[in-house]
Each structure stands twice: as structure tokens, then as C-alpha cells.
Design a protein around this nucleic acid. Structure first.
Length: 774
DNA sequence: GGGTGGCATCTTTTT
DNA sequence: GATGCCACCC
């Protein structure tokens, strides 16, 4: 794709690739070929960790040391699992890999619970409650137990409960060891919360790990079944596993001890979610005969990037000893960009990206902009859109977290599992059908005095002595759910979903509202229906050799459980033409030619409140380390002097992390040596009048400098390939509009566009000459 | 019971 | 700046 003469950099690139293709280095080979006993691979960033794990699994299969169904591989994201699965198939072939289980902890154990959950009193169609559902349940309980308090927010309670669950502390144990005001209050709702989930035949994310432990402890026969089945257990990103994950994999590997974990303690960034770094620190003392292998050669980054990363991480006290080195060239200096505001910052980054794209021929997909909080994406997006640069946001609000989708999904969940109290509360009166707060409150009272299930009360609403009007309304809701529930066995999932959603009136409701937003929501619900159709189709024709995501046959129940566990990062296709925007957390495990880290300011990165406790600050630092080491060739660090937050402009000060960095590999955007003092002076007297590379791009384009190159910024018509779902576009005749769907590919690629003036149109992109607008 | 408008709160990070 | 919550009116 590159249209440019190879530079010295590119030559090295080719070398790197072929080195990787040729196979593994000595340490990696040892790691991959030590198949028996506990193995821990402690590896630095960019050293080919996952690759080593992949090779190890392929090696097991290729040498006949293990049958595919004897191997379990646990990854951090579904995307990682899919990628690993793909490479294994490339190495050993489709047939030899069939039956291998590979996926995230949650999807793999979620699947086991579908099969074995009945031992614990769950049906196989149990519902998975995500964070949002969980917080709604907790909010109810806070109200019910009348323990409302300023700082006692559903979110705080949820995360306290979640942390307790991750540490395997049950409600009664928790009640006995409360140490703070918050803990005491949490103790009051923790028990009822667990009850509520049980009664709803529902599990939260933590239960997906805890219930297997309960299952294995209470049913030794089930445990030994899985112990015998999986003779080789692999865990990627081990530094981010929590107590529960440790216990469950320990149980599974206890008999044979063939457990191989890969991780980098310097990249542990999920302590807030219960990740327990002692898992990796204690692996050796924990497993007898454990073999420790260090991978210290970095294949990814330039020397300067690595040096910078090292200068950051060495400020942390707690870490395993290892020294990263690389054969890669020095590379360019790390550039520190100083901006006036978040808008200015976004514009400077956008220009930087455009500049490198034009000068060095990097594709837009080679760039990533990383930030600490999702809220920062907004200004960056604005700038990229204005500059016509195609981009994609990874993470943020997931499709399945949108309100309209959650509403529709709640109905589907109820058809599968009517005991799901939270879904009942969510949609019993949406769209409005005359069941008000009073009626719902009465139903909840009745439920509580009975078996705790709203559905039990609703099922016999006629006997509950409610007013005729309320009884009729509730009966209507009940009949709807029951009717579809009884059709569930025969009707295909997608048709059932389509008919049900239509009958609920969600779609007409959205269409009648007739605003741009409501029509977009309408479109989203349609998209949900197509997703279900796709899922059922895939499942019936599924010949995939590897159960990458623990896929179960295409039932509605399976669909619902699966979508609760997908992150947007999993869905991101390898669109190499889009600049990627994501949080530093989401960037874990990925790499890019050019990385920009935005918002390096005190209070933002490190975040306010993460500076008081040294342990929190160290985690922030590791997060920065992760970000830096995503970069292969170029790294840009930016900060703004003021930032718009909470609806107000706040002055900002550069991050302390900038001062910790090795200034000998850094320069300012004006090409001066970087140092704390330099930075300060630049802040005091911003030098926007001076010639900066980034700033001059527009002038150089205007001067025709890039005319002979393939990239043009002509505004006649945008490259159809840049038009994606959600793009704002302009048509010569129809005016401006928004792309609400894309179908087909290549010359057949068609976009459904909603135009402000003329409404919806379907256009073949090749001919439509659509122009992307901001 | 349903709908609307004003006000407070909010931003970590996610399977 | 957006979302959610409450109070008030129909």
C-alpha cells in the first residue's frame, strides 16, 4: 500500500517482520517448548508474549503432546482470543485445532455455567447483569433499606461489593470486617443484593468467576471432569488476574500442574477492578518447580521510546527485576506538544497525524491517540472530523449499553428468563402501558413477601387484589411475555426477536418521536435485530474450529449471554484506514506505528485522587508505561494549559510524569531540547508564531508540496472507503445528512443516508460522490 | 398515570 | 455538556 520509497526505517521494519516470521528467539523457544509443569513467562512490553503463548499451543498440537480439547487458553479480551485462534489455525490447520477452548475468563466460565449451573440452582438461560443492571439493582436496594447518603452512590457500593466478591468475601464475612462508614452501609445491601440476583436467575460479572469456584468446591466430580479434560492451561496477561481467577485456575491445574502464564508486572493496570498483582509476584513460591522465563528483548519500539518507558517505570518501587533492550534503531526523539486548551491540543495532534501521513506515508490506521478518560475523546473527535481524517473510537459507550438497545434486550431477556426482576422493572411500563410507579411498588411489595420474584406476582395478577385497571394492564404485559416465551422453542431466534420488538411498540414509539436522535435509535434497534439474525445464521452454519468466544448454538439465550460479554474493542475490525482513539486501558496488548498520548496534566493523568496513595500513583505510572510502549516508531506526548471539564474551563499544569522522563530523548515541538524548565518557559510564553512542523502542513499543502503524491485533500468527493456508519456527509443535491447504515463492499458498497432535507436515501458510494463533512 | 421543565451532579479506568 | 432526578402540572 505504501507509495513511497523505502526509507531506512522501512528497511528495518522488513527485517523485524522477517525475524518474527522466522520463528522465536532462544528464550521464547524454551518457553514454548517447556510443556510440563508450571511455567511463568515474565516479559517486557513488545517482547512477543502472546506470540510465544500462541507458538506453545501450536507446538503442543503439532507434536501430538496434547489433543485440542485438552487445551484451555484464557485471554483478556475476545479480540485477543480470536487473533490467537487465527494464528494457531494458520500454524497447524483447521482440523488439528478443532475443539480447543480459547476465550476470556468470563466467556469460558460463563459457558461452563450454562452446562453445569443447574448444580447451583441456575437454569442454563441465566441472565448476565452488566455494570449498569447491577447499579440499578443496588439503587433499588439503597432506596428500600433507606440508607440514602451523599457519598453512598450506587457506583461506590457496586465497586465495593465487586471488590469483596473478587476477594471471595461473602456477605456474612464482609459484615464482620467492616472498617469504614461506607463498608457498614455496604454490608447492609450486599446480602440482599446477592439474594436479588439469585431470585432473578441472574449473575453479575463477578459471579461468572465465583460460581465456578463454588461449583468445583461443592461438586468434586464436576471439578475432576474438567481437571481431566484440560491438561494444559494457559493464561495471558496474568498480571491482571484477580483472586477468583487465581483460585479457579489453581483448582483446574492442581492435578497435572501444567499451567503456563504470561505477564508483565509493569503493565498491571487493573487493580481498581480487583486485579491482584501478588498473583504474578508469587507465582514461583506458589507453584513448586515453577520455571521462570524472562523475555527481555523488545521487538516493537525504537531505542528512544524504550528508554523513555524505562525512565518512567523506574520511579516505581514495586516491580520484578528485568531490563528491556532492543536491537531496533534509535528512532526519533519523543515530541512533547504543549497546547493552550484541549481544542488546541486536538488540533495540534490532528496536524501531527496529517503531517506524518503525508510525509512518511503512514496509513491512518497506523495512528492511535490514547487518553486517560473517555470524556477526552470529544475534542479529539471534533478536530479529526473537521480535518476529514477518518477515525474510530474504541470503547466508550458500547452499542449494547445504549438505552434503546437495553430496552429491547430487556424484553428478549424476559422471554428467555422471566424471573429477571431488573428487566421487568426496566420495561414493565416502557413503552407506557398504564403501569405506574404505584402499581410497580405494590408488585415489589407482593414479591418481597413471597418468593422475591416479580414474575410470580405478575403471573397471578388477577389474585393480587389490585384495581381493575392496573390488573388489566399488568395482565397485558404478562401475556405478551408468556406468549413469546412459549414460542421460543419453535421459532428461530431472529424472527422471534423481530416480532416481539415490533409488538412491544418500541419501534413505533421511536419513529413517532421523529427527531434525528430518535430515528438513529430506531436504526440501532433494527441493527440489533440484524445482529441476532447474523448470530443465528452463524451458529447454524458454524464450522469454526475453535470456540474462541465459547460460542453456543444460536439460541436467543446464547446470544444474550454473549453480547453481555463483548467489549467494543472486540468488535473493532482491523480497519487499517482509521485513526484509533481509545483509553490507555483499552490500548493494552495493541501496537501502533505512531502513538499520541493526550492530556498529560496534573489531575487528569495522574488523575485527581490517584496521587495521594503511592500505590494508586504507581498504577497511573504503569498505565503511562503501557501507553508509551504501544508505540513502535513515533511517540507524541501532549498537554494543555487549560481544559474544559464539568462545563467549565479549568487551568491545568503539566503532569509530574513529564518531569520524571528522560529528557535526553525528548524535544519540544519546536525542536528544542525538552526539560522541566524549558517546558515551563514554553508555557509562560507560548511560541505559536514560530515555525513548527505540525503547524506548517496546511501552508505546505497550499504551496503544492504534496501534489505529486497520491494523497490529496481536495474537497470534491471523499474517498468512499472513508465513509463509515455515522459519518456526516454532503451530497450535491440532497444536502447534508448522516450515514445510518452501510452494506456491501467494494464497488457495491451502499450507504443509507438520512438527509436533513429529503429524508432517507440509499446510495451506491462509488457513484454518489459523497463528501465527508465535520 | 403521564409528561415536562428546571436543577444538581458529574468523569476514572472495564470483563 | 449531558444526563438523571424531582417537582409540578395536566
Amino acid at each position: 500500500m505504501r507509495q513511497f520509497v523505502l526509507s531506512a526505517d522501512d528497511e528495518h521494519e522488513l527485517e523485524r517482520e522477517s525475524a518474527v516470521l522466522d520463528g522465536l528467539n532462544e528464550s521464547q523457544r524454551v518457553a514454548a517448548e517447556t510443556i510440563h509443569g508450571p511455567v511463568m513467562i515474565v516479559a517486557g512490553a513488545g517482547s512477543g508474549k502472546t506470540r510465544t503463548l500462541t507458538y506453545r499451543i501450536a507446538h503442543l498440537l503439532a507434536t501430538g503432546s496434547a489433543r485440542p480439547y485438552e487445551i484451555l487458553a484464557l485471554t483478556f479480551t475476545n479480540k485477543a482470543a480470536k487473533e490467537m485462534a487465527g494464528r494457531i489455525i494458520d500454524l497447524v490447520g483447521d482440523e488439528a485445532a478443532r475443539g480447543l477452548w480459547m476465550g476470556t475468563f468470563h466467556s469460558v466460565f460463563g459457558r461452563i455455567l450454562r452446562i453445569e449451573g443447574h448444580h447451583l440452582g441456575y437454569t442454563s438461560d441465566y441472565t448476565i447483569y452488566d455494570t449498569d443492571d447491577t447499579e440499578r439493582v443496588i439503587k433499588q436496594l439503597i432506596k428500600r433499606y433507606n440508607i440514602d447518603d451523599r457519598q453512598f452512590t450506587p457506583r461506590a457500593v457496586r465497586s465495593t461489593i465487586s471488590r469483596a466478591k473478587n476477594k471471595l468475601i461473602d456477605p456474612s464475612a464482609f459484615a464482620q470486617q467492616t472498617s469504614s462508614f461506607l463498608d457498614e452501609k455496604v454490608a447492609l445491601v450486599y446480602g440482599p443484593y446477592e439474594m436479588e440476583l439469585r431470585q432473578s436467575n441472574a449473575m453479575d460479572f463477578d459471579d461468572l468467576l465465583l460460581n465456578p469456584i463454588r461449583l468445583f468446591e461443592q461438586h468434586p466430580d464436576v471439578l475432576s471432569k474438567y481437571q481431566n479434560r484440560w491438561k494444559f492451561i494457559h493464561i495471558d496477561e496474568y498480571q491482571d488476574t484477580n483472586r477468583a481467577q487465581y483460585v479457579v485456575t489453581r483448582l483446574l491445574s492442581r492435578v497435572h500442574g501444567n499451567i503456563c502464564v504470561v505477564g508483565d508486572d509493569a503493565q498491571s493496570i487493573y487493580a481498581f477492578r480487583g486485579a491482584d498483582i501478588t498473583n504474578i509476584l508469587n507465582f514461583e513460591s506458589d507453584h513448586e518447580n515453577a520455571k521462570l522465563i524472562r523475555l527481555e528483548q523488545n521487538y516493537r519500539s525504537t531505542k528512544k521510546i524504550l528508554q523513555l518507558a524505562d525512565s518512567v517505570i523506574k520511579h516505581n518501587k514495586n516491580q520484578l527485576e528485568k531490563t528491556l533492550w532492543t536491537d531496533n534503531p534509535d528512532g526519533d526523539d519523543i515530541v512533547v506538544i504543549e497546547a493552550l486548551s484541549e481544542k488546541d491540543e486536538a488540533q495540534k495532534l490532528e496536524r501531527t497525524i496529517r503531517d506524518l501521513h503525508l510525509r512518511k506515508g503512514y496509513s491512518y490506521g497506523d495512528f492511535a491517540i490514547l487518553y486517560r478518560t473517555n470524556a477526552q475523546s470529544r475534542s479529539l473527535e471534533d478536530a479529526l472530523r473537521r480535518a476529514n481524517i477518518p477515525y474510530e473510537i474504541i470503547g466508550g459507550t458500547n452499542f449494547y449499553q445504549r438505552k434503546e438497545i437495553k430496552d429491547a434486550v430487556a424484553y428478549l431477556r424476559l422471554v428467555v428468563n422471566p424471573r429477571d426482576n431488573e428487566s421487568i422493572r426496566r420495561v414493565i411500563n416502557y413503552p407506557t402501558r398504564g403501569i405506574g410507579d404505584k402499581t410497580v411498588a405494590r408488585l415489589m411489595d407482593i414479591a418481597r413477601s413471597g418468593d422475591g420474584s416479580l414474575w410470580t406476582a405478575i403471573k397471578q395478577i388477577e389474585q393480587m387484589g389490585m384495581t381493575a385497571r392496573a390488573t388489566k394492564a399488568v395482565a397485558g404485559f404478562r401475556d405478551l411475555i408468556q406468549r413469546y416465551g412459549s414460542m421460543r422453542e419453535e421459532a428461530p431466534a431472529d424472527e422471534l426477536a423481530r416480532a416481539l420488538i415490533k409488538e412491544t411498540g418500541i419501534l413505533t414509539n421511536l419513529r413517532d418521536e421523529n427527531t434525528i436522535e430518535s430515528l438513529a435509535r430506531w436504526e440501532n434497534v433494527q441493527e440489533l435485530i440484524s445482529a441476532i439474525a447474523e448470530f443465528t445464521e452463524e451458529a447454524t452454519s458454524n464450522t469454526a474450529a475453535i470456540a474462541a468466544t465459547g460460542t453456543t448454538p444460536g439460541t436467543l439465550g446464547a446470544f444474550l449471554q454473549e453480547v453481555s460479554l463483548v467489549a467494543t474493542i472486540d468488535m473493532a475490525d482491523d480497519s487499517d484506514r482509521l485513526v484509533k482513539l481509545m483509553t490507555l486501558h483499552s490500548s493494552k496488548g495493541l501496537e501502533f506505528q505512531v502513538v499520541c498520548i493526550a492530556g498529560l496534566e496534573e489531575g487528569l493523568f495522574p488523575l485527581q485522587g490517584a496521587t495521594a496513595d503511592p500505590a494508586d500513583l504507581e498504577e497511573e505510572r504503569r498505565l503511562l508505561y503501557v501507553g508509551i510502549t504501544r508505540g513502535r516508531k513515533h511517540l507524541f506526548l501532549s498537554s494543555a494549559r487549560s481544559r474544559f471539564r464539568y462545563g467549565q474551563v479549568h487551568p491545568a499544569v503539566p503532569s509530574r510524569f513529564l518531569e520524571e522522563m528522560d529528557a535526553s530523548v525528548m524535544q519540544t515541538e519546536t525542536g528544542r531540547r525538552f526539560g522541566a524548565r524549558t517546558a515551563y518557559q514554553d508555557y509562560a510564553r507560548p511560541r505559536y508564531g514560530s515555525t513548527t512542523i505540525a503547524r506548517s502542513v496546511d501552508d505546505r499543502i497550499a504551496g503544492g508540496e504534496f501534489e505529486d503524491q497520491v494523497y490529496t485533500l481536495e474537497r470534491v468527493a471523499s474517498d468512499p472507503r472513508d465513509i463509515v456508519n455515522g459519518s456526516r456527509v454532503e451530497h450535491q443535491l440532497f444536502g447534508s445528512g448522516k450515514v445510518i447504515a452501510i452494506e456491501g463492499s467494494a464497488d457495491q458498497r451502499r450507504a443509507t443516508v438520512f438527509f436533513k432535507r429529503v429524508g432517507q436515501k440509499k446510495l451506491v458510494l462509488k457513484f454518489a460522490k459523497l463528501n465527508l463533512i465535520e
